[in-house]
Amino acid sequence: MSEFSLLDPFQYLSLPLGEWVESILNYLVQNFRGFFRAIRWPIDQVLDVSETILQTIPPMIGILLSSLLGWQLAGRKMGVFCAITLFFLGLIGVWSESMTTLSLVLTSLFFCVVFGIPLGILSARSDRIERTVRPVLDAMQTLPAFVYLVPVVMLFGIGNVPGVLVTIVFALPPLVRLTNLGIRQVPEDKIEAARAFGCTPKQMLYKVQLPLATPTIMAGVNQTLMLSLSMVVIASMISVGGLGQMVLRGIGRLDMGLATVGGVGLVLLAIFLDRLTQAIGERSSSENPLHWYETGPVGFFVRRYRSMHSK
């Protein structure tokens, strides 16, 4: 090669980033295996419980329960809608796969909520935390999933648990962001009024900020669910089961039928979850004068019970 040139110094200067990462990773794998195994444990537990429950409930009972849930949370129409979507899932023969995917998604949602909402609250309270957290969230959202699939496999192995882990990485950011935004958007005059009546910071959070931020936080939950669902397909590359696996197999074998069935299953599941969480979000923002126990199937039975007793 020619001698050093200022115009193109990169012939000589280079930062061996790839090598570094590789050696760090090797070091971690060799010395901290136990630690990463320990991280698997809670995810394993939650996943186990949710999958066992979802898989053991017979489809018709499952449909009935979820439509009752839809009715309770968002009205009669939603109940009917839930029943139809899930019934269709069963019809195209992907009930079991759907339940696996659903348990994966719910597990990752669980951990996203556990970590994301407190993180969002913290970053809403301190600008410094927000400044630190934000680039990390950016990286989590923009880093192509394939990049961290390999290290995750090296550290955690393959299967559903690491699948949930990569899903959490991908789906966590919107919940943190929207929790942060929701709390920061609480009108200044409400905050001032709460202060004027002697709220401690804790009372402020629980009595004013969180209730007023609920619709935005619910939008975050909704986004997290949707991202989780889209991640499930990619995660199937590290041997995660469910609908994503179907799609991946279909593509691998050029079996369009199989891929389509898996894809449609995912879409149906997505619609079901999206509508349900959106409806919850709207409900929390609409200042419904009725209490939760006065609406839906519970309200129906409560009214029955009351009218029986008033006679």
Partner: peptide
């Protein structure tokens, strides 16, 4: 001391 605000500042929830 209690305060009454120009913008009412009632809690909507």
């Amino acid at each position: 001391m209690s305060m009454v605000f120009q913008s009412f500042a009632l809690m909507p929830h």
